[in-house]
């Protein structure tokens, strides 16, 4: 009876949005605020994304820094996923999708003709909303990427290192050859993170990675992200405000507004700043309304 108490307490803690937000906001700047001299990984200048004639996101200016966690928040349909997918050219796979504007990755134009989207995706990994392990063994899931890319490293070592990195090794080390589909949802998602890191990427894009998980599994992934930012630059889309407050260094707030000329709802970046600023003194009223739940 008493042993389950702490768990329940911590779950209640997750539910309490205000306290998390104020906690994060109250953190001393040295811990939460990123150094300003971090190198930019992505620089988006005037980026718009179209699906055929429909403009989903418009005129985004945004710089994403090395070894930081950047959160994208905003109401449904405002183009967070669309924007995220431009960073590893996943939108290329959608017929009719195209990007205009300039998007550089370590100073290189990501959308230049001589850039291979496949090579881009090896360096910029992606974790999806729904855990999507291959119907193969745990081992083969992790080995999938390195096998395609070709590697000199011992495959067993890669598998162990990746699973350790995702905090999954202890749980699965005795069943590496069993199907990944036998894992729980939270384990599957950590497997997907391990799979994405197995090819040694430099950036991880995560599109609502915890939305299918319970608070405890969510907590584990958040811890993992905080640990991983030593090695990776992370961009995360989330609908969970507390999560953005807990894990991210910077937050970008998007919203969708009706364009009177086209009569379409187009996503735009309202505000982008340090997470502490966004959650304590947002500059824009729309941001404030959204984070305080007065979004209308």
């Amino acid at each position: 009876m008493t042993s389950t108490k702490p768990e329940i307490d911590s779950m209640v803690g997750f539910e309490d949005a205000r306290s998390v937000v104020t906690q994060a906001a109250g953190q001393e700047p040295a811990a939460a605020a990123p150094a300003t001299d971090r190198a930019p990984v992505f620089e988006a200048r005037d980026v718009s994304v179209y699906y055929s004639d429909f403009r989903a996101v418009t005129n985004v200016d945004l710089t994403i820094n090395d070894n930081e966690i950047t959160a994208f928040i905003g109401p449904s349909g405002c183009g967070k996923s669309t924007m995220l997918r431009t960073f590893n050219r996943m939108n290329d796979l959608i017929e009719g999708a195209r990007m205009v504007g300039s998007l550089t990755y370590h100073g290189i134009d990501l959308y230049s003709d001589d850039v291979d989207p496949v090579a881009v995706r090896r360096r910029i990994g992606m974790v999806f909303q729904k855990p999507n392990p291959f119907p193969k063994s745990i081992y083969d899931n992790i080995a999938f990427g390195p096998r395609l890319a070709g590697t000199d490293e011992n495959m067993d070592d890669i598998v162990e290192r990746s699973l350790r990195g995702a905090g999954l090794w202890e749980e699965v080390k005795d069943r590496l050859k069993t199907s990944a589909l036998g894992l729980s949802g939270g384990q599957q998602q950590r497997l997907c993170i391990a799979r994405a890191t197995a090819v040694n990427p430099d950036v991880l894009l995560m599109d609502e990675p915890c939305s299918a998980l319970d608070p405890i599994a969510t907590g584990r992934i958040e811890e993992l992200m905080l640990e991983m930012k030593k090695d990776y630059t992370i961009v995360i889309v989330t609908h969970n405000m507390q999560q953005a407050a807990r894990v991210s260094d910077r937050t970008a707030f998007f919203t969708a507004e009706l364009d009177p000329n086209t009569d379409q709802r187009t996503g735009l970046l309202v505000e982008y700043d340090l997470t502490t600023t966004i959650f304590s003194q947002p500059a824009d009223e729309r941001t404030e309304n959204y984070i305080t739940g007065r979004f209308g």
């Binding site: 990994g125 999806f128 729904k130 999507n132 291959f134 119907p135 990427g145 799979r195 090819v199």
Partner: peptide, 27 residues
């Protein structure tokens, strides 16, 4: 075959042929 599986393959940096051969066809 669920589209998410192919997405996963592309997300790791597989080419279209690799996704078809190693993900879609086995499934």
């Amino acid at each position: 075959v669920p589209g998410e599986l192919a997405q996963a393959g592309y997300g790791i940096g597989a080419t279209q042929w690799e996704v078809i051969r190693s993900v879609v066809l086995p499934a």
